[in-house]
């Protein structure tokens, strides 16, 4: 492989990997405080993309109950993105109140909340299908302003072309990861989240409102999923109500690779899987979808705690 192609693939891989990273951060945040996997995370990802599409003035197709519906106003894309993420975050909080909290209050087995979140995912995905149909929706080409289609990182003779959208996605993701890291380590709320993750009972004895912390974590997690969904949607398209499922499953690979509940782990895991996918040779592209799972599998066998996780000792 020559150097040009290498850089091109590397940059593409980092770009898609950065989306995996912010998506998986939402997964891992919830896991870190509750020790459960929120299987509805992929559905929230889809939902966020649909919300942004709607608020950016997009029109639905003729299949769902909301056939041809369109808001009477159209927000600029960046504002629609924020509204979309906030709404995705709110749905995530509602989910916590309806599907997770009752089980937690009863002290139920954590496997049951896995099932209940799967149920919630089925409800969300099929509600989207009933309302907006199964069509593919695309954002207009100029949502990020009138930018050139691609940017050349090489020379005129030896071009390394990267799509502008990919660069924007990478930048946005980097900013979000930086903000989140700052929020988690420097703010009071971030420290409260870490305290609850460490030990919920002790945290509440120390005067931390555990339930509020959990709700805020779900909100942030939902926003991250919605953002990731919109970014992917703006780069390719919103490929129907089911398009979050694949990301939801791949996201599992990301968080297992980095270590469940580990924030830097989710970022590194996301970038690794993105780059690994980008380097699959063209003739094997059919196997691209399996990369995340193969890595997940290998990691579970060799080092179940993940790259950055600490080995936990079972206590009686």
């Amino acid at each position: 492989m020559d150097l040009t192609l290498f850089f091109q693939q590397l940059l593409n891989g980092l770009s898609i990997g950065s989306v995996y990273a912010i998506f998986a951060l939402g997964y891992t945040l919830v896991f870190s405080i509750l020790g459960i996997i929120n299987f509805a995370h992929g559905a929230i990802f889809t939902l966020g993309a649909y919300f942004t599409y709607l608020f950016a003035g997009g029109q639905f197709g003729f299949n769902g109950l909301l056939a041809n519906a369109q808001l009477p106003f159209a927000l600029p894309f960046w504002l629609a993105l924020i509204v979309g993420c906030m709404l995705a975050g709110s749905v995530s909080v509602i989910l916590e109140l309806l599907a997770f909290r009752p089980l937690r209050k009863r002290g139920a087995d954590s496997l049951l909340s896995l099932v209940s979140s799967l149920g919630a995912a089925v409800v969300i995905v099929n509600s989207i299908q009933a309302l907006a149909g199964a069509e593919i929706y695309t954002f207009p080409a100029n949502i990020y302003g009138n930018l050139p289609e691609s940017v050349n990182f090489g020379s005129a003779d030896n071009p390394i072309l990267i799509r502008t959208v990919q660069i924007i996605i990478f930048c946005v993701s980097t900013v979000i990861v930086a903000l989140l890291t700052y929020g988690m380590t420097q703010t009071k709320m971030g420290k409260a989240i870490q305290a609850v993750a460490e030990d919920g009972t002790t945290a509440s004895l120390l005067g931390i409102n555990t339930e509020q912390v959990i709700r805020i974590t779900f909100f942030v997690s939902g926003c991250l999923a919605g953002l990731a969904g919109t970014l992917v949607g703006s780069s390719v398209s919103i490929a129907g109500p089911y398009f979050g499922i694949t990301y939801g499953l791949k996201g599992l690979g990301v968080i297992v690779l980095g270590g469940l509940g580990n924030i830097p782990g989710a970022v590194v895991g996301g970038l690794l899987i993105g780059v690994a996918e980008a380097f699959i040779p063209g003739e094997y592209s059919g196997y691209k979808e399996a990369i995340a799972f193969a890595l997940l599998f290998g990691m579970l066998i060799l080092r179940p705690q993940g790259l950055f996780g600490k080995k936990t000792i079972q206590k009686v």
């Binding site: 020790g35 459960i36 996997i37 954590s110 496997l111 896995l114 499953l249 599992l252 690979g253 297992v256 469940l260 979808e289 399996a290 799972f293 193969a294 997940l296 599998f297 579970l300 179940p304």
Partner: peptide, 13 residues
Amino acid sequence: IYLAIATIAFVEI
């Protein structure tokens, strides 16, 4: 949870 995740990966592969 790890077993559930590993078996999901198996089905997908």
